[in-house]
Computed example of a mutant assay.
Amino acid sequence: MTLSKNKFDFEELLNRHHLKKTSPRLRVLSMMSSKSTATSQPDLESVMNDIDRVTLYRILSAFEEKGIIHKVFDLNGTANYAMCLSNCEENHHHDEHLHFNCSNCKNVYCLEELSMPAINVPAGFKIEALNLYATGICPKCSKKSPAK
């Protein structure tokens, strides 16, 4: 979802999802939408030290439940969060895209331009969520290190 970084857009997003417009929620949205990578709760805590851990956890949980953000895991198994596309709904995410974990800088990128391939499962199985992870070196780290 492409969000401009102004307060009105975030307030409208919270209205649309029936969430109160609180300063901590607006700040979390602003911070997350400004990042090109997924971010973890500890990373958010380090830059938003005036929002306590429990409040931040509740904000992230509410945003995930409402389809505003989605959870993706990094190479260490830590939950990271990224803004959802506009077609995510409450309790039903449409974040079936490649999640790229850089083994150098440890950032997690949502490569939304790459769709998931069609998966045909045997009779009786129903896919409710699908995740595709790739591990490698991101463009930023590729520029830093000499070619081998």
Rank of each mutant, 00 (worst) to 15 (best):
H70F: 13
L44S: 05
S40F: 04
Q41V: 10
Y57V: 06
H70M: 04
D50A: 09
S36I: 12
R58P: 06
A82G: 13
D43V: 02
N76L: 13
I69L: 07
V54M: 02
K66R: 13
L26I: 12
V47P: 09
G77N: 08
N76A: 10
I51A: 03
S23K: 04
K20N: 14
I51T: 03
L29F: 12
D74C: 02
A62K: 06
R53W: 03
S23R: 02
K71F: 00
H70L: 04
P24A: 15
K71N: 04
A79Q: 02
V72F: 10
K35H: 09
M32C: 12
Y81C: 12
C84E: 08
V72I: 09
R25Q: 14
A79C: 06
F73W: 03
D74R: 00
A38Q: 03
D52A: 06
S34Q: 14
M48S: 07
Y81T: 01
Y81R: 04
P42C: 02
M83R: 04
M48D: 03
F73D: 04
F73A: 02
D50R: 15
G67D: 05
T55N: 05
T55H: 03
M83F: 09
R16E: 10
P42Y: 00
V47D: 03
S23D: 14
L56E: 04
L75A: 11
E65F: 09
L19R: 14
V72D: 00
D43S: 13
R27K: 05
K20G: 10
I51Y: 11
Y57C: 07
T55E: 13
K21S: 13
C84M: 08
R27L: 14
L29S: 04
V54L: 06
S46F: 03
M31T: 07
S23F: 09
P24V: 15
H70W: 10
T39S: 14
T78C: 08
H70G: 03
